[in-house]
Nucleic acid binder design. Structure first.
Length: 423
RNA sequence: GUGACCAUAGCUCAAUUGGCAGAGCACCUGGCUGUGGACCAGGUGGUUGCGGGUUCGAGCCCCACUGGUCACCCCA
C-alpha cells in the first residue's frame, strides 16, 4: 500500500494507453486543420470571476465544482472548468475582432471539475474544444458540428446519435419558460423532489429528467420550437436544411436544452453507448450572449467540447484498434566490458542516424539480453561478443525471422538504415 | 452532495464455523559456461487500503475514515 495515490478523480495515463491518446490527439489536430481552425493554448487557471461570469452563477459548475484558490498574493484563481470562457477572454484581450471573422480556434488540454468520480467522469479530464467567433451564419453552426462529426468518423465510430435543438434567444425563450412552468404546475403531483427543485431553479432542466414517473408529462410538455421567434426559427430551419443537404443523420431532441442565459439558438450533443451513464461524449452550441456578458461588444459565437477520456472509453468499448507504439530497430546486446564499450558507441551512432535503438544495461547473460530484446519488440538484436569483436563485426539477429548474419561494425548503421527503409 | 455495493502480491483472484496469508499471470534467475518466444524448475514480491474495537486468536465480526465501482444530481 503505497504512501501516496493519485488524488481522487485523477489518473495516470500509462504508456500502454499512450497509443490511444496519441491517435486521438493526432486526429483532433488533423480535423481542426482541415476545417481551418487554429490552435490556441490558454492558461490552465484564470481569475475566478471570469468563470463565474462566463459559465454563470447558479450552474453546478460554478456553485460546487470549481477548484478555486487564493494564491500567495491574494489573487482569486480557478483551475479552468471549461475552455470557452478563457478563449473568449483571449479573443477580447488580443483584440481578435480586428481579425477576419469568424475567428476559428481550437484547444486541447486538461479541464478540472470537482465532481464525484464515475466511469467516464474524472476531476481532471481532457477536452478537445472548438470555437468559432464573430459570425451568425447558420452554415457556421453546421461547420462546427461537422468538425465533431468528422472527428468521430475518422476515429472509426459509427452510429453515433447526433441530437440537435434550438434553445431560442433572450427574446423568445422567456415566453417559452413561462409556458413550460405553467404546464408543470398542472402536473406537480407526478414530480419528485429533484424535479420540483428544477422547476424553481432551472425549469429547462426538467426536460431531461430521468424520473420514470415524469416521462409521460415531459413527453407532452410544450416544445421550445413552437415558441421560437422568427429569427431563431429561421436560423434553426436553415441549420436543419444544411444538415439534410449534407446527409448528416441527426434527430431533433426537444429535451435538449442549455439553461444559461447567453446560450442561444443551436444546441447539440452526441451520445455514445456503452460507457455508462456518462454517455455525452460531446456537447456544444451557440452562445451569442457570452462575449457581451464578459464585457465585450455583442459578438456571436458557437463551439463544442468533447471529452477525450470518454472517446477513448468508447473506442475500447467498441474494440477500435489504434496504431501501436513504434518499435525499436535495434537492441544492442554486448558481452563483457569490451563489448559494452563498443555497444555504447554503436547505440549512439544508431540514434544519431535516426534509428531507435536500445542498449542492454547490467551484465546479464545473452539469454537474458535476447529475452529483453524480444520484450522490447526490437527488429534486430545486435550481439557484440568476443568472437564478433575479434573480427570487427557484429551479429545481427532478426528477431521475428530467427535468422542471423555478421556485419562489419562500421557497416551496421548503413545496413539497418537500408533495412528499415525497406519496411 | 445523496444512495448502494466493494477493497488480499504489480494484475486477476483463492483462503472451510474466526485458527500458520495462497495460486495463476507478470517480473528475475537457471535448465542451455554465447542465442529470445514454447516448456520445466526456482526466486523476488504482503504490516490483507488506514485507524480503532470485540476475541485466547481477526483477511474474515463491529465502528469510523480513505479509496474504488454503479446509479442519482450534473456533465465531457
Amino acid at each position: 500500500m503505497p504512501l501516496y495515490r493519485a488524488p481522487r478523480g485523477t489518473q495516470d495515463i500509462l504508456p500502454e494507453d499512450r497509443p490511444y491518446w496519441r491517435h486521438v490527439t493526432e486526429r483532433a489536430h488533423a480535423v481542426a486543420a482541415l476545417y481551418g481552425y487554429e490552435f490556441i493554448d490558454t492558461p490552465i487557471f484564470e481569475e475566478t470571476s471570469l468563470f463565474v461570469r462566463g459559465v454563470g452563477e447558479g450552474t453546478d459548475i460554478v456553485d460546487k465544482e470549481m477548484y478555486s484558490f487564493q494564491d500567495k498574493g491574494g489573487d482569486d484563481l480557478t483551475l479552468r472548468p471549461e475552455f470557452t470562457a478563457g478563449v473568449m477572454r483571449a479573443y477580447l484581450e488580443h483584440g481578435m475582432r480586428t481579425r477576419p471573422q469568424p475567428v476559428k480556434l481550437y484547444s486541447f488540454g486538461p479541464i478540472f471539475r470537482r465532481e464525484k468520480p464515475q466511469a467516464g467522469r474524472y476531476r481532471q479530464f481532457w477536452q478537445f474544444n472548438v470555437e468559432a467567433i464573430g459570425e451568425m451564419d447558420p452554415a457556421l453552426d453546421v461547420e462546427v458540428m461537422s468538425v465533431a462529426w468528422q472527428l468521430y468518423e475518422d476515429l472509426g465510430f459509427g452510429g453515433l446519435s447526433f441530437q440537435i435543438n434550438s434553445t431560442g434567444d433572450p427574446r423568445c425563450r422567456p415566453r417559452y419558460i413561462e409556458a413550460l412552468v405553467a404546464y408543470y404546475r398542472q402536473h406537480l403531483d407526478v414530480l419528485g423532489d429533484d424535479d420540483r427543485r428544477r422547476l424553481e431553479r432551472n425549469p429547462l432542466r426538467l426536460l431531461d429528467s430521468k424520473v420514470p414517473a415524469a416521462q409521460p408529462v415531459i413527453a407532452a410538455a410544450p416544445k421550445i420550437t413552437d415558441y421560437l421567434c422568427d429569427d431563431c426559427a429561421q436560423h434553426f430551419a436553415r441549420v436543419r436544411r444544411y444538415l439534410d443537404e449534407l446527409d448528416r443523420p441527426y434527430a431533433v431532441n426537444h429535451r435538449l436544452v442549455r439553461g444559461l442565459d447567453y446560450y442561444t439558438k443551436t444546441v447539440f450533443e452526441v451520445y455514445a453507448e456503452g460507457i455508462g451513464a456518462q454517455n455525452a461524449v460531446c456537447g456544444g452550441g451557440r452562445y451569442d450572449g457570452l462575449i457581451e456578458a464578459l464585457g465585450g461588444p455583442p459578438t456571436p459565437g458557437i463551439g463544442f467540447a468533447t471529452g477525450i477520456e470518454r472517446i477513448i472509453l468508447t473506442m475500447k468499448e467498441r474494440g477500435i484498434a489504434v496504431p501501436g507504439q513504434p518499435r525499436p530497430t535495434a537492441f544492442v546486446a554486448p558481452l563483457g566490458e569490451d563489448g559494452k564499450t563498443v555497444a555504447l558507441k554503436l547505440v549512439t551512432d544508431l540514434r544519431a542516424a535516426g534509428l531507435p535503438a536500445l542498449l542492454a544495461f547490467g551484465d546479464r547473460s545473452l539469454k537474458a539480453q535476447l529475452r529483453a530484446a524480444d520484450r522490447a519488440g526490437a527488429t534486430y538484436a545486435i550481439i557484440l561478443g568476443e568472437d564478433e569483436l575479434a573480427q570487427g563485426q557484429a551479429a545481427l539477429r532478426h528477431m521475428a525471422q530467427g535468422t542471423q548474419q555478421n556485419v562489419l561494425l562500421q557497416d551496421v548503421v548503413t545496413f539497418l538504415k537500408n533495412d528499415s527503409r525497406e519496411q
